[in-house]
């Protein structure tokens, strides 16, 4: 599925003294099968942007297209099933008496048969490493566990596009890594992922393309390496290091991920260092 935003503006509280133009003419496309990261400072419009992808928020002006068709003509329930959105701090939305029921809610509402629901719930809980929690109350879980259950609830709907708003904020580094593995897994199976993050180091590990927002406008958009090397303010530690080393040793190239960067720096130091 391809999603396009066409000159999307979004104004909150229009006509009042607190009017905020959160998006000021954003155009971009989410290509099928890619991991697209949305980065930018506090209040730059990231959450507002990703909530437009399934029309949870509607543009004040401009259009959202799904496979070339105006998203407004599609049924909202269908749209929300095909484009699964995991909120910032999703654990606040957990509500069912136990984890199983919570994750089953989405697929059931989509009309999936009970047998299939059961299978999906078990599979997704397994995939997120929380199968052992199925019977527990979602309220009595740790922060990291709640986060995984909330993500499982969206994944169980088998969305074509998975949208994650700061999915790793507040997680311990090991849990964060496991969650990023899940993201890569979804992509490897042909799914599309849009991830909002303020952790550029993690963006460097997962993103194919990066969109930088500043005050509601797209400041940069493109392949991760192109964006990071052009915008040092939004570059992860790997890129910032390599860019500095490249001044004297251009052979270091333009690595982005940790592995690429380590290999490139080793190259500069010669093979004797391991």
């Amino acid at each position: 599925m391809k999603i396009e935003l066409e000159d999307v503006r979004h104004v909150y509280a229009a006509g009042t003294t607190f009017e905020v133009a959160a998006l000021r003419g954003v155009s971009l496309a989410v290509e099928p099968g890619e991991v697209l990261a949305v980065v930018g400072g506090t209040g730059s419009g990231k959450t507002t942007l990703v909530r437009h992808l399934n029309l949870l928020l509607e543009p004040t002006s401009g259009r959202v297209l799904v496979d070339g068709e105006d998203a407004r003509v599609l049924r909202r329930s269908e749209l929300r099933g095909r484009i699964g959105l995991v909120f910032q701090s999703p654990e606040e939305a957990l509500f069912a008496p136990n984890v199983f029921e919570d994750v089953a809610f989405g697929p059931r509402r989509m009309g999936v048969g009970e047998e299939e629901v059961e299978k999906r719930v078990q599979d997704t809980l397994q995939r997120l490493g929380v199968a052992h929690l199925a019977d527990r109350s979602p309220f009595a879980l740790s922060g990291g566990e709640k986060r995984r259950v909330a993500i499982a609830g969206v994944l169980a709907m088998h969305p074509e596009v998975l949208v994650l708003d700061e999915p790793t904020a507040g997680l311990d580094p090991a849990t964060r890594g496991e969650l990023l593995d899940v993201v890569c897994g979804v992509r490897d199976e042909g799914g599309t992922v849009v991830i909002v993050s303020h952790d550029l180091d993690e963006v460097a590990e997962v993103a194919d393309r990066v969109c930088v927002l500043e005050c509601g406008e797209v400041r940069a958009f493109g392949r991760a390496a192109d964006v990071f090397y052009a915008e040092p303010r939004y570059a992860p530690a790997t890129v910032r290091t390599a860019a500095l080393v490249a001044r004297d040793y251009p052979g270091v190239g333009r690595p982005v991920s940790f592995r690429e960067t380590l290999a490139a720096l080793r190259g500069v130091l010669g093979r004797e260092t391991t």
Partner: peptide
């Protein structure tokens, strides 16, 4: 304790 060093430290470590 599931702690991971910052990226810069991990690169340093990897380079000896």
């Amino acid at each position: 304790n599931r702690l991971v060093l910052p990226t810069v430290s991990r690169l340093a470590l990897g380079l000896g």
